[in-house]
Design a protein around this nucleic acid. Structure first.
Lengths: 207, 207
DNA sequence: CCGGCTCGTAGACGACTGGTCTAATAATGA
DNA sequence: TCATTATTAGACCAGTCGTCTACGAGCCGG
């Protein structure tokens, strides 16, 4: 009983999370294949031999990394889209602006793992692809709910289906973030923000 | 003089191209870091030692790979967008439909290297990132010209700037292709195609 | 026709790192 | 004190990129 309750703060899970946190920063910079366990474990101050006490393999570790990432991301998304007294349209635009800002600065901590790893990992590991699919589907579903709420409160027009709009917007921002990695500036994300206004039927503002 | 003319068919360039063609298939599946020169050269039937007669390093090889890819892609794009007696809108939609079809089937030969490598390579090699930037910028510029032509022949409405629309569409399709790698089906690309209709101000068709 | 020359190629090799696992240590609890 | 568990050091081999020497095909002068 108490073991179940303390699952997240048990020493072994604390260590797991510590390794995952360290790895996220490194991997969001160098990718999955290009980073060795050595580098991660050394940075985390964990002996190499201990790795297989916490994770069954590098692939299982990758799964856990993505699961932890999406878990935190969805919490953050939920918080972002449930502020009292703010219209649905404003909540959504706040989310995209936050996306633009976190992906255009240079802090590796906030970089999106879906953008970084999707292409590399989907053809590499079926289990990691599956976590990625589950995570992104949940993000899109949450965005669709937010769009629906915006339609309900009158801040968004009814044009296409919320699911379709959410999917399109997510894909647009995925691609914009990818291109931002190429150009190394925020122009792709600014362009995506303008397009988001259009796709949501909002008056274009000076961003 | 004749050397310049024959540059593309000189034995050394034939060999280079043969290695590049072989590598493109493998790398578009497994990525850049995860593939060793061994595997590529073995598949190409080229001994390992000879590699450094054709390319200075793996990174230089990666540059050449991307250059060759974009060179071929831009030729293909040009051919796709310059068919006589077809309206600008139809040319563009033909291009997106072709994109959808090539990226949704399983043939690794036609897979987009920009989608596959952008995230991995941009943080790994400045020179490869630079080739990627140059290539994608050219694609977007060519798309912008096609949109401009569509406005000129009356098949497209004047709404936003051609450059902006081209950028948005390209990013949307980049992201849709990325998500298609995750979901392993064509739904992301079908959704992108519908959104493309909307963004171009065309009547939505049953795709 | 032949010997000596160059030059592109061949693939073994070096130094190193990868993920994985076993065997030994440290810590814990009875 | 001992049995059991938790932790870790280091060996392991396959694989990495890049180098280096040695082989052999082709040419040229005689």
């Amino acid at each position: 009983m108490s073991m179940l309750l303390n699952m997240k703060t048990s020493p072994i899970n604390e260590m797991r999370q510590h390794i995952l946190d360290t790895a996220q920063i490194i991997i969001s910079g160098k990718g999955f294949s290009a980073v060795g366990l050595n580098e991660i474990l050394q940075e985390a101050g964990v002996p190499k031999g201990s790795f297989y006490h916490y994770f069954g393999s590098k692939e299982a570790f990758g799964e856990a990394l993505l699961e932890a990432y999406f878990s935190a991301y969805l919490d953050q998304l939920e918080a972002c889209l449930t502020q009292p007294g703010v219209s649905g349209a404003e909540l959504l635009m706040g989310y995209w602006i936050k996306w633009r800002d976190t992906q255009s600065d240079c802090d590796p901590k906030g970089k999106c793992l879906a953008v970084k790893l999707a292409a590399e990992v989907s053809d590499l590991s079926e289990s990691m692809r599956s976590v990625l699919q589950c995570g992104t589907d949940q993000v899109i579903a949450r965005l669709a709910r937010a769009i629906e709420a915006g339609m309900a409160d009158g801040s968004l027009l009814h044009q296409n289906s919320p699911q379709d709009t959410a999917t399109t917007l997510y894909q647009l921002w995925l691609g914009a973030s990818l291109r931002a990695k190429i150009t190394r500036d925020r122009e792709p994300l600014d362009t995506a923000l303008r397009a988001t206004h259009v796709l949501l039927g909002l008056p274009s503002s000076t961003v």
